[in-house]
């Protein structure tokens, strides 16, 4: 397993700067956001949320390497988020299942009853 500093070296050799990572993260986040906003299928929405979370993870790791490679707090955060997102996915899928059982639908448009 490479240390974080070595990764930075490799990346530097490959000509990758922090901007590239951030660019990828932004694209990922945008894709996820677009998916969340536009998709009508609840499962796909959940998947897109995962995508956004991963984009955030990428940013954490990239910034951590860029700012202070000897510290691992960014990575720790990323692990945290992974854990939480796993839990969230489990709960989310459970809710979706329960919804499907009750309404025979996984269309987001059908669930707008939580209002005024």
């Amino acid at each position: 397993m490479m240390m974080s500093a070595e990764v930075a070296e490799v990346a530097a050799v490959a000509g990758l700067t922090v901007h590239h990572y951030l660019g990828v993260a932004t694209i990922l986040f945008g894709l996820g956001f677009a998916g969340v906003v536009s998709s009508r299928h609840l499962i796909r929405t959940l998947m897109c949320v995962e995508l956004m979370l991963n984009a955030v993870n990428l940013v954490f790791v990239a910034i951590n390497n860029h700012v202070n490679p000897s510290d691992l707090s960014g990575q720790v955060f990323a692990i945290f988020i992974l854990t939480i997102s796993a839990a969230e996915a489990a709960v989310g899928l459970a809710i979706v299942l329960a919804l499907f059982k009750n309404t025979a639908s996984v269309d987001v448009e059908d669930f707008s009853r939580l209002k005024w």
């Binding site: 448009e109 669930f111 707008s112």
Partner: peptide
């Protein structure tokens, strides 16, 4: 004002974004 509260998850998310 209550009309803004549509109950549509995606509208909320889009507004936030």
């Amino acid at each position: 004002v209550t009309r803004l509260n549509s109950g549509r998850l995606q509208t909320y998310v889009a507004t936030i974004g």
